[in-house]
Design a protein around this nucleic acid. Structure first.
Lengths: 160, 160
DNA sequence: GAAAATAGATATGAGGCACAACAATGATTG
DNA sequence: CAATCATTGTTGTGCCTCATATCTATTTTC
């Protein structure tokens, strides 16, 4: 069995570290790239006092007014208990409201306030600009290919 | 200013949740796809009693025998304190050893044991198979494009 | 109407990650 | 050479993300 990668001699510390084996895996490459994107997103959202999860929740509530917490948790792929604190924060800051649903008094219909919608507009615009810079080195066709490929991988969960 | 996406009527809960706005962002698509990859990786590594970070560390030590903890932390993009517990675990399981460096008695030269190398072989093979399934829907050219694009995004950090 | 299911909330714990501070050692410089 | 500074690994601490178990209030089902 032939070695895929050369190893450094065993008696001294390598000057430069090789990640050649790991580079063969999508997971490694995705994590590295995503770290950069997430770091950028975090700094982009900081002026708005939003974190990734509060931002995601806000966007989804603006786009889907009246949705239930369980629906939102489902869409965000997080457990219901973890969504509660996110909603708490958005509600405390008066960006959204929890409206009681008359037909089902267990549930809340989530809606944004005017302030929430205004913050949404500003935050989405800022994130759009920042992501544009991250993708500056890629042409439109490549971006489309990448987006489609990511979707394919995402959907591969079911087919496993 | 024209709305990019239609919103659901405001008086009832939407039946299906739209993430159209978020789909416009690489970050969102990458996180979703990466979640699937990571979930698959976790289940793939479980039989070997490895987590993503212990796996990554093991691979890097096999490929770069003799490297220092600080080098490894740097390569893994984590802080030195967090690497200590990872190395502790690998050492306790006798997959690696901490060799004292004669020329610098502060540092450890990290090397794998035979057991570590054997586990490496098996784990890498298993991950390769699993990732192959995740990428089954994509042809080689697409994978190359995606890999290159991820690298471009990763390197965009410096250019910010 | 009783039992099972569902919506949301609370509590708790694990894992990933950052920062501060320390001891031991090494490098620099006056 | 001595004093200062930098680096290596370590410990401690705390935050954030996320999962699970459990609870109450309600609704659905039989």
């Amino acid at each position: 069995m032939k070695r895929k990668h050369e190893h450094t001699p065993e008696d001294s510390a390598p000057n430069t570290i090789s990640d050649a084996t790991l580079r063969g895996f999508v997971g490694y490459r995705m994590k590295r790239a995503f770290n950069v994107v997430q770091e950028d997103l975090t700094t982009t959202l900081r002026p708005f006092d939003l974190r990734m999860l509060t931002y995601t929740a806000l966007v989804l509530i603006v786009d889907n007014p009246g949705l239930r917490q369980s629906q939102l948790a489902d869409a965000m792929d997080i457990e219901r208990p973890n969504l509660v604190v996110i909603i708490d924060e958005l509600e405390r800051r008066e960006l959204i409201v929890r409206d009681r649903v008359p037909t089902d008094r267990r549930a809340y219909a989530l809606r944004t306030t005017l302030a929430g919608r205004q913050l949404y507009e500003k935050a989405v615009a800022a994130v759009t600009v920042h992501e544009g810079k991250l993708l500056a080195g890629l042409d439109d066709a490549t971006i489309t290919t990448v987006f489609d490929a990511l979707r394919t991988i995402e959907k591969a969960r079911k087919r496993g």
